[in-house]
Amino acid sequence: MSATMTPASNDRIARRFAALKAEGRGALVTYTTAGDPDAARALEILRGLPAAGADVIEVGMPFSDPMADGPTVQAAAIRALAAGMTLKGTLDTIAAFREGDTDTPVVLMGYYNPIYIYGAEAFARDAAAAGVDGVLIVDLPPEEADEMIGALRAHGLSLIMLTTPTTDETRLDEILRYASGFLYHVSITGITGSASAENEAVDSMIRMIRSRTDLPVVVGFGIKTPEQARAFAGMADGAVVGSAIVSRIAADEDPLGFVKELANAVRGR
């Protein structure tokens, strides 16, 4: 896959980013954990996200050792696992969501261990059947991605790859050999929900990335407020908000009301 390759025109992710570009704005990308706080409530929240203003939805695959995640998302995974959520249950949740929404792109985000146990081919097949559009595997570097990328491509799924503040041009070119859908730029060196990024540093990285690919670039990690979401969605092709939403779920507050605030900010309202 070349550094300038763009997804097929019939792909939900490509259609959504093209539509947003035509609107002249970036995407609001939301993250929640499948099964948090329980399967029924998680599905209810998931179904409400598009109407609240989410343009792209990331769904976390609960895992017992989420090494890139901060305490907020770690606790969400523990709650989900304790409530009985599994990888198969996560796919069932997406399938249930798709019964009422065939347009919103859905990306699964998580770690390779559960997928390895499930089987890469079986996972890609079942994820595609459930209505998943892409997969972001935090601990799968390009050097180890051949089996997974082959399975995903065979079933029309994107492999969303990560870049970080330490990614140089040589490493970026290696990442772009595998990336499709969009790139997820980790704005800080740290875990989710931790310190916020500096705008100038992120802007510089986005410019470097865009000089080498046409793929959309979204920014995540450390985006907690509507103001930050607006700033980074305007700078990149989208902003990801996760821990700040998950913390409201944990507190039994209204996560969808907060998503509406984020969406209004991203839309300049």
Rank of each mutant, 00 (worst) to 15 (best):
A54S: 13
L262I: 01
R267Q: 11
T102D: 03
G70P: 11
S243C: 06
I57K: 11
V186S: 12
V138T: 09
V135E: 00
F221V: 06
S158I: 00
L162Y: 07
G234F: 07
T166M: 13
S158Y: 00
V241Y: 06
G156T: 15
R230Q: 13
A76P: 05
P216I: 13
L20T: 13
T33A: 02
A250R: 02
V241G: 05
V218L: 03
K88C: 05
H155P: 01
A51V: 13
D252M: 00
K224A: 08
G181W: 14
M1C: 07
A42S: 13
G181V: 06
L183K: 15
V218Q: 04
M85E: 15
G131N: 05
D101E: 15
L172I: 03
L152M: 09
A39D: 01
I137A: 02
A129K: 04
G48W: 08
G190N: 04
G89S: 06
L49Y: 06
G234V: 06
A42C: 03
Q228G: 09
E147L: 02
A54I: 10
L262F: 06
P50T: 02
R267D: 10
D168E: 07
I45N: 05
A128T: 07
F232Q: 08
A263P: 02
R207T: 12
T93H: 11
Y31R: 04
T213H: 03
A95E: 04
D38Y: 10
G150F: 11
G238Y: 12
A96R: 13
K224D: 02
N10I: 01
H155I: 13
H155Q: 12
A22M: 12
N199M: 10
D203Y: 05
R177G: 14
A75S: 10
A39S: 04
G70E: 10
F182Q: 15
G110H: 11
M235Y: 01
A39V: 09
I57L: 11
V266L: 11
A19P: 09
F221L: 04
T102M: 11
G35I: 05
R41A: 14
A128G: 03
P71L: 03
E121F: 08
T170D: 10
S196D: 14
D214Y: 03
N113F: 11
D69V: 05
R16T: 13
T167G: 00
D36Q: 03
T213S: 08
A96W: 05
G60P: 07
L162K: 09
L87I: 15
G60L: 09
F258P: 10
V107E: 04
G24R: 15
P216S: 07
A122K: 15
V240M: 02
L176V: 10
A52K: 08
H155E: 10
P142F: 08
D101K: 10
I13W: 02
I249C: 01
A82G: 08
A75T: 00
D173P: 02
V218H: 01
A154S: 10
T164Q: 05
I175W: 15
G119R: 07
L140Q: 08
T189I: 15
T90W: 09
D92H: 04
K88H: 15
S9G: 00
A27W: 12
G84V: 14
I245H: 06
A263L: 02
L108S: 02
Q228P: 14
G234T: 07
G84L: 13
L91Y: 15
A239V: 01
T170C: 02
G60V: 08
S64V: 14
R15V: 12
G238P: 05
D214N: 14
S180L: 04
V217G: 02
V266M: 13
R212V: 10
F258L: 03
S9F: 02
